[in-house]
Every structure is written in C-alpha cells, then in structure tokens.
C-alpha cells in the first residue's frame, strides 16, 4: 500500500515536471530515429534488388534504387525463358512439393502431437524425450544412409524423398509446437465428448483439430516457407532439369548465364521470394506469435 502511494506520487510528479517530459520526448525521437535508420539500412539491399530487376543491364550497378526513364519488365521475360526449361516448370515443381509437404506435416505431426498431449500409453515419456532429441540432431548424420535407402527404392529424381518423410512427421518442431497448443485446450471438452461415447479418433477430428486452426495455420506457413527455400534436399535428390525447384533453377542460372544477364537473374530472384513475401504480409501475426511462443528456428 505504501509503495503504491509512492509510485503514484513519482509518476504524477514526472508528468507535471516539464523538463522530464521534454527529456522523455527527446529520448523517444532519438529511439525512432535509430530504428528508422536501422530499418532502412536493413531493407536497402532488398529494395536495391527489386529496383535492379527493372533496369537495363548497363544501369544496374551505377544508379541508385530510384526509378529511371527506361524502366521496364524485359528482364522478367528474359529470365523466365533463359534456360532450356522455363522458370514456370520450376515454380510448378516447387509448389507441388510445398503443398504436399504441408498436407503431410499437418496430418502426421498433429497425430503425433495428439498422442503426446492427450493419450496415455506405455513409454510415452521415453518417446517424447526421443522426439525432442531429434530437434537437435544435425541432418548430416542421417542424410547419407537416407540417400542410399531412397536410391535403392528407386526414388532419386522424383519428389518422393522430399515429400514422403513429411508424412512420417520428421519435422519434430511442428510436433512440439502442436503439443504446446493442444495442452492449452481445456480437457473438459474431451471428457464431455468421452461421456457421449466419442473415441479418440472422433475427439481428435471433431474437437482438437477444429479448435487448433491457429497452430495448424502457423505450421502450414512455416512448412511452406521452409520447403520453398529448401536447397539442400533438392540439390541431392533432383538431377534432371525438368524436376528442378526454383532454388535449383536459380543456382543453375547463376552458374550458366548469370554472369552475363544480371537483369534476368535479379528478376528471377525477386520472383522466387514473392510467395514468401506474400505469406509474410498476410500471416505476419501467426508467424511472429509462432516464433514467440516456441522459439522457432528462423
């Protein structure tokens, strides 16, 4: 009580004192200046990339980011068809892989998360500990035998090595994310459904999943972004150009014509990050909350 009274006098005192108010305002202006300059510094490279993709090649490196008279979208057409296989095919491949990965992750990870969050079974704690350990396991330890396995199955140069593991819930991060969310759903709901004779499948399907839309959306967005950006997996498993993802297409572009056609290369680079940027604009809140609650990787 006494401390409350103290606080009150201190706060009102500060507000009535004009010099303190002035100081507060100066600090706030300084902080905003620092933040605005930092964001410009950070975003300048991205703006530069965007601007460069609209410029004729001879102007890319000696003008700033401001539009010039001869801006056009030529580079986008040049880049799109710069190689034997068009970028349209690469985009299609990337989309197919990303969408199947989302489906796989949502089904398999939510099933495992439901088991960990709600069901009782033998060795549950052991399996949960194992699942958490795989979060820290570097992928290099398993990739070589996985490659041999997929080769023996005849899956090289197909999308199967990139998609099937998702249906087996290898992305433990999403299991963890969903377990955290499921634990927050009131148990009374399951118990009431169980009284009405619902089994675990019905509870999972009719109660847990409909109530978990936010976490499912977060998992879907992150799956999309990570598979869209994935370079290592496609690099290892896809060798024919018609199977390439956008990331592999870009890399080949750099190696072959990139040094002579910067405009085309930058235009395709911009296009390759457009889907991520759009997801970011629409689902920004989900992404930031997903990171804040679990401490996601990126």
């Amino acid at each position: 009580m006494t401390t409350d009274a103290h606080k009150l006098t201190v706060v009102t005192g500060a507000e009535n004192d004009p010099s303190a108010r002035m100081r507060k305002r100066i600090v706030s202006v300084l902080a905003h200046t620092a933040l605005i300059s930092a964001s410009i510094l950070m975003l300048y490279p991205l703006l530069w990339l965007l601007a460069a993709s609209f410029k004729p090649d001879n102007q890319i490196f000696n003008t700033g980011i401001w539009p010039t008279a001869d801006w056009d979208i030529d580079a986008y057409f040049r880049g799109w068809n710069a190689m034997r296989v068009s970028f349209g095919v690469f985009f299609m491949n990337s989309f197919v892989i990303a969408i199947l990965s989302i489906v796989g992750n949502l089904i398999a990870c939510s099933m495992a998360a439901y088991a960990f969050a709600r069901l009782e079974f033998k060795f549950k704690n052991f399996w949960f500990a194992m699942m958490m350990m795989t979060l820290m396991l570097p992928g290099q330890v398993t990739i070589i035998p996985q490659y041999v396995l997929f080769r023996d199955l005849g899956w090289i140069n197909t999308i199967l090595p990139l998609v099937v593991p998702k249906f087996l819930a290898v992305d433990a991060f999403f299991i963890f994310l969903m377990v955290q969310f499921f634990r927050g759903i009131p148990r009374e709901l399951d118990e009431a459904a169980m009284m009405d004779g619902a089994g675990p499948w019905r509870i999972y399907w009719k109660i847990m999943l409909p109530l978990s839309v936010p976490v499912l959306v977060t998992a879907a967005i992150f799956t999309f972004i990570w598979t869209w950006d994935d370079f290592f997996g496609p690099l290892i498993f896809l060798n024919r150009m018609q199977d390439y993802t956008v990331t592999l297409g870009l890399r080949t572009f750099v190696d072959s014509t990139g040094e002579s056609d910067f405009g085309g290369l930058f235009a395709m680079s911009v296009l390759s990050i457009v889907p991520i940027f759009v997801f970011f604009l629409i689902f920004q809140r989900f992404l930031i909350e997903g990171i804040a609650t679990t401490g996601m990787k990126r």
């Binding site: 089904i107 398999a108 990870c109 099933m111 495992a112 439901y114 088991a115 960990f116 069901l119 009782e120 079974f121 549950k124 399996w127 699942m131 249906f167 087996l168 819930a169 299991i175 089994g199 675990p200 499948w201 999972y204």
Partner: peptide, 9 residues
C-alpha cells in the same frame, strides 16, 4: 490408440 496416433512418427 496412443501407438496408432504415434505410428507415422
């Protein structure tokens, strides 16, 4: 049921 849900993982 627990193991069935856990099966894919």
């Amino acid at each position: 049921p627990g193991y069935l849900f856990l099966l894919p993982w």
